[in-house]
């Protein structure tokens, strides 16, 4: 079975000059969400609905899926700060006015899963709605989890997304954004039976992507953690092992009949730049073995400026361009999440 990207969506605040102040006027919900119905949604939820709807190819006013189709459709979203702003506000309100000062309508915004849940409600996704919350890497982890769930048959289609809004008034955490990819299971050439991994979830994936234009293929994903040793250095064994696992993904990308070698794209916050360079070098070294290579192994580390959405924004850009790539999201705590993106060009999708 192949996992294809059949839609993408993104909304992102452009970085502004320092001292320009926080500004949420960059996003106008009306074109994305209509004039009504979103007043009590947190910014993170609004962004996710906008990006998610774009990836799915639906209008906000479209009816939600129902019945069997909705039971084969899932949502996975990554976020780091979805509740940070509202929690600060509620905490201060509790201490000054008491609980009566909190509006019941805004209480759902105090749950990390609410952006994904609102997308599941509006699109009618009943296979599952999962939220992952690791800082920085959660966006690519959403893709990893979604692709795995497609392979185990939990769904035929999954929106893998991320959304973040760093708490207003805190400088330097990152900019607002959401991004989403629609992943579709393609069983048209599923001669292999390696996907029968025990899930009790039924449902045929065949034919579900009929007529869908595939932008790219997700050929694999890896998640690793590199601890710091007592001497304060990144554990070299863990770093090398993680890099080898990531490099091994390149073989899958090349296997998807791509003639060009995949790009290596590493995304990390500025505070994790040094570690990201070490990761890039380690993956490059691991790739210097016969049969696997990437272009631009010395490419600069991309600065992750949109919190947990950053890695997914890179993935969306690459999927649109049709380039095959290894996208690696790196957090300052030592977490690596990599997604392998293959060229999906195949006659049946033209």
């Amino acid at each position: 079975m192949r996992v294809l990207i059949t839609g993408v969506g993104a909304v992102a605040q452009e970085p502004r000059p320092a001292g320009d102040g926080a500004d949420d006027a960059w996003f106008d919900p009306v074109p994305h969400l209509g004039r009504r119905g979103w007043k009590y949604f947190s910014p993170a939820t609004r962004y996710l609905l906008a990006a998610g709807n774009e990836a799915i190819g639906r209008r906000h006013s479209d009816e939600a899926l129902t019945g069997a189709a909705s039971e084969c459709f899932g949502v996975v979203a990554g976020t780091e700060y979805a509740i940070a702003g509202v929690h600060r506000r509620m905490y201060d309100t509790l201490r000054t006015e008491g609980v009566r000062g909190i509006s019941p309508a805004e209480v759902p915004a105090f749950s990390m899963n609410t952006p994904a849940s609102q997308l599941a409600i509006s699109a009618g996704a009943r296979a599952f709605s999962v939220t992952v919350t690791n800082p920085v890497t959660a966006g690519l982890e959403a893709v990893h989890l979604a692709a795995t769930a497609l392979r185990t048959g939990r769904a035929d289609r999954v929106v893998a997304a991320a959304t973040d809004q760093a708490p207003p008034g805190v400088e330097g955490l990152g900019h607002d954004a959401a991004a989403a990819v629609l992943l579709t299971a393609d069983s048209t050439d599923s001669a292999d039976s390696t996907d029968s991994a025990g899930g009790p979830v039924g449902g045929s994936a065949g034919g579900s992507c009929e007529g869908a234009l595939a932008l790219a293929e997700i050929t694999g994903g890896v998640s690793r953690f590199v601890p710091v040793d007592a001497d304060g250095r990144w554990n070299p064994v863990a770093l090398a092992l993680g890099a080898r696992r990531i490099a091994a993904l390149a073989a899958g990308v090349e296997g998807s009949e791509s003639t060009t070698r995949p790009r290596l794209v590493v995304s990390a916050p500025a505070s994790a730049h040094e570690f990201a360079v070490a990761v890039r070098e380690a993956v490059g070294d691991a790739l210097d073995t016969p049969g696997s290579d990437v272009r631009d192994r010395h490419t600069e580390v991309q600065e992750a400026r949109h919190c947990a959405v950053s890695g997914l924004l890179e993935l969306v850009t690459l999927a649109k361009s049709g380039e095959s790539a290894l996208v690696v999201s790196v957090s300052g705590s030592g977490r690596l999440t990599a997604i392998a993106l293959g060229n999906a060009s195949r006659p049946e999708f033209h």
């Binding site: 749950s111 990390m112 899963n113 709605s129 999962v130 939220t131 992952v132 919350t133 690791n134 959660a138 982890e141 989890l145 890896v222 998640s223 690793r224 953690f225 590199v226 601890p227 710091v228 554990n235 863990a238 092992l241 993680g242 705590s333 030592g334 977490r335």
Partner: peptide, 17 residues
């Protein structure tokens, strides 16, 4: 937790309420 115990494999946090 991963740093404390040296857990180097897949690392995920799920928050479905």
């Amino acid at each position: 937790i991963a740093a404390r115990f040296g857990i180097g494999g897949p690392n995920h946090t799920l928050s479905t309420a």
